[in-house]
């Protein structure tokens, strides 16, 4: 059981990175982005392309770091992919959502168009890479570390937890300490007043997409390192991501982080009693329960 909880925290930290993006986009752009999972998928394939094609071509050696299953190639691909996906997220906003916003389209129209984007993004992956499961580095199995309580954890998983934590801390510092971060929170609080204060709210929307996309990219790559890469991976994350965001109070970034961990642990622990294929149903059940009992989320959402 202790081991399942640890695996749950690993999965939960990945969910948290995605859920923070969902909640930021919802709070500032005011739309439910169903294509958020596809940012994860795209990031995984983009990183795969960089690791297996671009970097070998550039002559970056295929090393691995000690007990980890990857080396320099991945460390280079990781930030590059985050930036690339950030721009992809901004690109779709300019191409589509911005125009719908300016036409004062309803929340449903925006959500449905993001669903359309999600299909397009997934199909492009299927056309280019096919439906096979892939790995960043096939055939490498690193021995797991033995922790007390009979917990076995792979070095890769410790890396995943560390990266997720560092990214969340960086985001926290950005939102609390920088002028742009404070303006983001102000825009989420009261867009009209932000505009009145001279804040370029469209610029804030771009930052939001960039940060949301970048974090989703990190989540996608980390999942690829932990499990595997396949075209449906991001889509399968949509329900856990929304469950985590709603659990934490949609719009509340810190809530989304905690919500992510809770959903991750709940999904993993459920495998002790249920078939693993029911993991998604567990996330969905939690989401429905929260919507029934406490729709504003466990942290009460934003203070109004």
């Amino acid at each position: 059981m202790a081991e399942l909880i640890v695996y749950g925290i690993v999965l939960g930290s990945i969910i948290a990175l995605g859920a923070i993006g969902i909640t930021l986009v919802y709070g500032i752009v005011r739309m439910a982005n169903f294509a958020h999972g596809e940012f994860m998928t795209w990031a995984a394939y983009l990183a795969l392309f960089i690791v297996t094609v671009v970097l070998p071509w550039l002559g970056v050696p295929d090393s691995t770091f000690g007990p980890l299953s990857f080396g320099w190639r991945m460390l280079i691909a990781f930030p590059v992919t985050m930036v690339a996906v950030a721009f992809i997220a901004i690109f779709f906003d300019r191409l589509l959502y911005k125009k719908l916003r300016f036409k004062k389209s309803s929340a449903v129209i925006l959500a449905m168009s993001s669903l359309g984007v999600s299909f397009i993004l997934r199909m492009i992956i299927l056309i280019v890479w096919g439906a096979d499961y892939r790995f960043f580095r096939p055939g490498v199995m690193r021995p797991a570390l033995e922790l007390p309580l009979g917990i076995k954890i792979r070095p890769d998983q410790i890396f995943i937890l560390t990266v997720a934590l560092v990214l969340v801390v960086l985001l926290y510092l950005f939102l609390q300490k920088t002028k742009m971060g404070k303006a983001m929170r102000a825009t989420a609080d009261n867009t009209e007043l932000a505009l009145i204060s001279g804040i370029d709210t469209e610029g804030i929307v771009m930052w939001t997409w960039g940060i949301g996309g970048g974090l989703a990219a990190a989540a996608g790559i980390l999942y690829g390192i932990d499990v595997q890469i396949h075209p449906g991976m991001g889509w399968n994350f949509v329900i856990p991501l929304f469950a985590a965001a709603i659990l934490g109070g949609i719009g509340n970034m810190y809530g989304a982080f905690v919500g992510g961990l809770v959903i991750g642990v709940a999904e993993q622990v459920s495998t002790a009693f249920l078939l693993p294929t029911y993991k998604l149903a567990v996330a969905f059940m939690i989401m429905i329960l929260i919507l029934f009992i406490r729709p504003q989320g466990i942290f009460g959402g934003s203070e109004k």
Partner: peptide, 25 residues
């Protein structure tokens, strides 16, 4: 500068941060 009748503060920001947002530009 304009002060609207309602929703004229950023509720989840501190007073200090509200002032900083007033000086955003």
């Amino acid at each position: 500068s304009y002060v609207p009748q309602v929703s004229n503060v950023f509720p989840s920001l501190t007073i200090q941060e509200n002032m900083e947002m007033g000086a955003f530009i």
